[in-house]
């Protein structure tokens, strides 16, 4: 029981003509070590939701518990929480500001008040973790390529040693290679360290490949909650929400309509390949 969200509601500009209900009675629980995918069309409340999870936004109504403690109760240290729940924003490279890569990554752990040698140690570990070679450490972050900048920014959050890592579209604007590298690294963190991951993404393929569980947001409400296989079965409803299932799921459904006996819950290309080979061998 790591994160529990109860009946969370958030309203922008309450009581004016600009009032906007961003979140509406959202409840869920994320156990330790789960890889959760969060999907929803633009403006469905995903970003607002994840900002609540580390206390950056105060909810209009509802409660959030981290390890059983109400994070908005009097005396609860939000700074402590933020070191445990790491949040990587969209386009995180825009938050870089230091003269060189290593100092920028040091910023987070230094804010935690750690001794200087441990700060340095953590920063180096984090940079290695995201695959930044040592020759870049003393360079200005502004001279790096887009994908490298993003890795440095992610390392900046990882250096805080969070138990939960939340990533808001970490692959937006990256080329396919950069995208796969970042997501593989995230998966490695999940597998090797048992880190809880919450990943926001618009790529259903990525979701099918990495997430153990999917949360679907629609107009500020939780629409679905389940394994990717269960969720993508509702692909027609997903389409009405401006979402979709992975492309290979559509292929599988089309094959079934033509009488090919294949499992309808296939969500990744690899699964489809194995299932098709099996069908062919049987024939």
């Amino acid at each position: 029981m790591a994160i529990r969200v109860e009946d969370l509601t958030f309203i922008y500009n309450e009581g004016t003509a600009l009032e906007q209900r961003a979140l509406d009675g959202v409840s869920f629980e994320i156990p330790d070590g789960q890889f959760v995918g969060l999907i929803g069309h633009t403006g469905s409340g995903k970003s607002t939701l994840i900002q609540h999870l580390n206390g950056l936004v105060k909810p209009t109504g509802g409660k959030i518990y981290y390890n059983g403690e109400d994070i908005y109760s009097e005396g609860y240290s939000l700074r402590q929480l933020r070191s445990k729940v790491g949040l990587v924003f969209q386009y995180p490279e825009h938050q870089l500001f230091e003269v060189d890569v290593i100092s920028d990554v040091c910023y987070g752990p230094r804010n935690l008040g750690l001794p200087e040698d441990e700060v340095r140690q953590r920063a180096e570990d984090a940079l290695r973790l995201v695959g930044m070679k040592e020759k870049y450490w003393e360079q200005s972050p502004f001279e790096l390529s887009g994908g490298q900048k993003r890795r440095v920014a992610i390392a900046g959050v990882l250096a805080m040693n969070p138990e939960v890592l939340i990533l808001d579209e970490p692959t937006a604007g990256l080329d396919p290679k950069g995208r796969d590298e970042i997501l593989d690294q995230v998966e490695k963190l999940h597998n090797a360290r048992g880190m809880t991951i919450i990943l926001v993404s618009h790529s259903m393929e990525d979701m099918a490949r990495y997430a153990e569980r999917l949360l679907v947001m629609n107009h500020g409400k939780k629409a679905f909650d389940g394994t990717p296989r269960e969720i993508f079965r509702h692909y027609k409803e997903l389409e009405q929400m401006g979402l979709a299932a992975p492309q290979v799921t559509y292929v599988v459904h089309a094959l079934r309509e033509r009488g090919v006996d294949i499992d309808e819950d296939i969500t990744t290309v690899e699964e489809a390949r194995d299932a098709l080979l099996e069908v062919l061998q049987r024939a």
Binding site: R82, S83, H94, Q95, G108, G156, V157
Partner: peptide, 13 residues
């Protein structure tokens, strides 16, 4: 607002 939140997520005060 966004950068502020991003730095607060890194423990800024």
């Amino acid at each position: 607002d966004k950068i502020m939140k991003a730095q607060m997520a890194r423990g800024a005060d």
